[in-house]
Design a protein around this nucleic acid. Sequence first.
DNA 1: TTGTAGGCGTTATCAG
DNA 2: CTGATAACGCCTACAA
Lengths: 334, 334
Amino acid sequence: MPTIMDVARAAGVGIGTVSRVLNGSRLVSPATRQRVQDAIQRLGYQPSPIARAFGRGRTDKLEVLIPAFAHAFLLEILLGIQDALSDSDYAVVIRIASDAAERERLYQECCVRGRADGVLVVWMTATDAFVDRLDAESLHAVLLNALHPRLTSIGVDHDDAAVRAFEYCAGLGHRRIGLIDRRQDPFDPATPGICQRGYENAVAHTGYALVAEYERLAEPSASAGAAAIDALLELAEPPTAVVVASDAQAIGVLEAARATGRRVPEDLSVVGYNDTPVTRDLGVTTMYVPLRELGRVATESLLELLAEPATSPRARNLPTELLVRRTCAPPTVR
Amino acid sequence: MPTIMDVARAAGVGIGTVSRVLNGSRLVSPATRQRVQDAIQRLGYQPSPIARAFGRGRTDKLEVLIPAFAHAFLLEILLGIQDALSDSDYAVVIRIASDAAERERLYQECCVRGRADGVLVVWMTATDAFVDRLDAESLHAVLLNALHPRLTSIGVDHDDAAVRAFEYCAGLGHRRIGLIDRRQDPFDPATPGICQRGYENAVAHTGYALVAEYERLAEPSASAGAAAIDALLELAEPPTAVVVASDAQAIGVLEAARATGRRVPEDLSVVGYNDTPVTRDLGVTTMYVPLRELGRVATESLLELLAEPATSPRARNLPTELLVRRTCAPPTVR
DNA sequence: TTGTAGGCGTTATCAG
DNA sequence: CTGATAACGCCTACAA
């Protein structure tokens, strides 16, 4: 492998000059630059990324921490991240956490200078200890769909989404509207449901009575969604519509409803959440969450933060959108 | 940040000794080791990964190249990769290719020494040019669910899977069994269907007539699957069962069948492929593909290759398994 | 068993 | 504008 010295020798210049050419410094005469570039070409030289990292003191790596339940949206978010990185030379190191203990381990491990230049935490609670360690190592992080007062975060207004989903159902004529919610952080039983507040506000605003049994908190999986809708449908006065806080759960709801002989949307209206390929294909009416955008914007924020470390944290929400498809209709019974 | 020198000073030893302790060399007396470890503890020292990489000449990074259609199985494969890496200190750099041009770019970019120690190509055709470049840089790669004569590959016997799916349907009494196949490489129109040969063998073996119209090649998406089944069902003698080469397509088949008033499995039996969370939840009878295992074994192979670069390439298939659920039944018409 | 010195390939800082 | 030279932090002989 040729090194920068070989190039310098071949071009008859010093290594400093080669380095300048490599890094696009303007302090090189056109003639010299040409000579150096020719030499680079001729030798097929490529600067060693690892020596470069050592010299510059940064890795050109971003670490993405993501929970294992992210099945449905991982790829979309990664695409967004790649979008933001397309003309930088950052690469993405990915780590998946399957439970709280693993999440903790990742938080621990990524807080070492020289491992990555920045961290993107997706859909997981950031602990104070983590943020402290981040500070101690003067590393930077951005949250995607999660919150921490001392960290920049990019997300979506779940409560607003819940309100709009609810009001859409109410507008269709539904009077008994259930909620199958999921926790902010699936690993952390202490976190509240993501839509709870919005749902309750919407109920109040619409003037409906708040029925505690209509609110369910479930794991973000199809089977948990199925169990939740089963419970809901066994009530004396079951809901005629249900707002579901994840598409995974919505799929379970659809299946369970069918299995008990209900037709969707005639007997039960369902609003999903996220707009994954599957629910799109199944024709589920859903709250669209701009996953790819989320990934892009979060990464852009992280890049800004790396460039301008003094920036103070801010929280930004991207708009969601109700995608009307085929799982909602006016109620047939009242 | 403390460096190895600070530790050496604090422990009253040379940096060589600290390095040896760090790397678990046995050539350190217990007493010295203890002293060094205390100093490390006291100073909160952590070796700089980037300096370490520089010194050792390797990155401790594995690059994973994966196509953007991998929605359904990306996470599962990544979990398998992480399994294999759990007690090494390799990290995973991920790159997604959305089309053939991007795939080519990734192939180009990952062939630079110092970017990663090894490459794992998932579900994409490896071009000869890529393998040549790999050789030129003496880098190592393993293929997951793809083939190249000069590369080790871990996969699954699609043809065998097709045979078994077909024979299961035949055993149920179906005489007209269709195939909705997909290409080996979705980016490469030149690649054949993954199940074609197996399907044709099964037809021959069962003694059925080979009906060309029963074989469809479609994109691995639900909408393409839906279009394919629509075409199949419009035939004068439509199939009563269909073997589908991906779960994404199977979901589309299910939806399209329902949309045209068919019941599954009464009017149409469907066998899917892969066993993704969604098809599991939908109760789709499917060929289980051990995705996580695939990720793990492929990564282990790559690790072995890195440790023992002389190893000659081999192709290994992991067994698939028919998971009988609720989308197949004996035909009601003949 | 231990310490010392040289090397890894850049970048960055200085004189010139 | 350009060339030398000093870091950067670790690993690994080699010498003791």
